[in-house]
């Protein structure tokens, strides 16, 4: 197997609970690609994401390597992996304003002033069609707006790879289509490898990348 230098790569990953094996797989995701792992519930999809992101529970045993841009991540703690995670819910911090939510993960540039940072937040809000929403209470945003803020917050933390855990399953049908298109377009433009787990074939097809069935 050739080692990729830019993408996310799983080498002979095998996850089990006690003596029961949940899954084993090897794959690689190129930057700008959204790879989909499909499976019914209980097949270990979420466990796989927890393993890649770096917070696998004690109950599980994992083998194999996770590589990001050629570097092994297995021993790196979650907060240092630079792997972003998009959950089923938007999970905007309820105690922070919309702008403060975006700022939470914002990577500081050397020599950047607070004013410049605020400007970046304003531009980011503008990019997701929410210009002027910075001071708002996240609870006052619609479901679709919250999803967009969550995605932008993730991108501002400048992840080297992105994991999506059934990110559209809690949205109603109409919104789902819209947010799905927005998310995948944004991810492809961001040019990072993305890894989607879902049980919805429409999600997988919209992602447009390779599909692995568990």
């Amino acid at each position: 197997m050739t080692t990729m230098t830019t993408g996310l790569e799983l080498q002979n990953v095998s996850l089990s609970v006690g003596s029961r094996q949940l899954l084993s797989l090897s794959c690689s995701v190129a930057p700008g690609e959204v790879m989909t792992v499909m499976g019914a519930s209980g097949t270990g999809k979420s466990t796989l994401l927890a393993f890649i992101a770096g917070f696998l529970g004690d109950a599980f045993t994992a083998e194999g390597r996770v590589l990001l841009a050629g570097k092994e991540l297995n021993a790196v703690p979650a907060e240092k992996r630079r792997i972003g995670l998009l959950f089923q819910d938007a999970l905007l911090f309820p105690h922070l304003s919309v702008a403060a939510n975006l700022k939470f993960g914002l990577v500081r540039k050397v020599g950047e002033s607070p004013r410049e940072r605020d400007l970046r937040i304003e531009l980011a809000l503008d990019a997701i069609g929410l210009a002027g929403f910075g001071d708002r209470d996240p609870a006052s945003l619609s479901g679709g707006q919250q999803s967009r803020v969550a995605l932008m917050r993730l991108l501002l933390s400048e992840p080297k790879a992105i994991l999506l855990d059934e990110p559209f399953s809690n949205l109603d049908m109409q919104l789902r289509e819209e947010i799905r298109t927005f998310t995948f377009d944004t991810l492809r433009a961001a040019d990072v490898p993305a890894f989607l787990v879902t049980h919805d074939l429409a999600d997988a097809q919209a992602a447009g990348g390779k599909i692995i069935a568990l």
Binding site: I83, G84, H95, F104, S157
Partner: peptide, 26 residues
């Protein structure tokens, strides 16, 4: 998930405690 989320956004343990845990259990 709040703390997992904060970690994937790069927050250290101290930031997780002070800026996520404490406000959320205020």
């Amino acid at each position: 998930r709040w703390l997992l989320l904060a970690k994937t956004l790069g927050a250290s343990s101290a930031v997780c405690f002070l800026r996520v845990r404490i406000p959320l259990i205020s």
